[in-house]
Computed example of a mutant assay.
Amino acid sequence: MRIGELSERTGTSRRLLRYYEEQGLFTSQRCANGYRVYDPQLVDRVLQIRGLLDTGLPTRIIKQILPCLDTPRAIVVSDATPQTIATLDRELDRMTQRIECLTRNRDAIAKYLDAVRANAQPNALAAS
């Protein structure tokens, strides 16, 4: 697929896709006319990259952990510096806190909806 289709399918601008490629987060092939051609499997990879960026991880760290998302896993730890490990520890803690917060919010919304639905059913029967 060409860059426009990858952009459309991922909701990521062409400029950002080029930037991700420059950062070594993925590669493309080049046609004879110089156009980039992307593997359709990159849709999932770009969405993973965007999700990791949304958590606050920089692209240099994302590049290091992307192999953990592949199957089979090809994890290389030789380039893990103490700073990288500390950054990932902080981000892991931050993500865990965010997940816990989201879980509490989801549960509260579910309880609210249950109460609203339980209250709405008798009112709906009375209206008919």
Rank of each mutant, 00 (worst) to 15 (best):
M1N: 06
E5L: 11
E8P: 00
G11D: 11
G11E: 11
T12Q: 01
T12K: 04
T12H: 03
R14M: 12
Y19R: 08
E22F: 00
G24Y: 09
F26L: 11
S28F: 06
S28Y: 10
S28W: 08
Q29H: 08
Q29M: 09
Q29P: 00
R30L: 12
A32R: 10
A32I: 07
R36F: 10
R36C: 07
Y38E: 04
V43Y: 08
V43A: 07
Q48T: 14
I49C: 01
R50M: 08
G56M: 06
G56K: 09
L57M: 15
L57N: 01
L57Q: 01
L57P: 00
P58V: 04
T59P: 10
R60E: 10
I65T: 05
C68P: 01
L69A: 09
D70M: 11
D70V: 03
P72Y: 03
R73P: 01
A74E: 13
I75N: 06
V77M: 10
S78T: 14
T81E: 06
T84H: 03
T87N: 10
L88M: 15
L92D: 02
L92P: 00
D93G: 09
M95H: 02
T96H: 14
R98M: 07
R98N: 13
I99L: 14
E100A: 15
C101W: 04
C101I: 06
T103C: 05
R104C: 03
D107P: 05
I109Y: 06
A110N: 11
A110L: 12
K111T: 13
Y112K: 13
L113F: 05
A115N: 11
R117M: 05
N119P: 00
A120W: 11
A120E: 06
Q121N: 01
A124F: 13
L125D: 14
A127K: 11
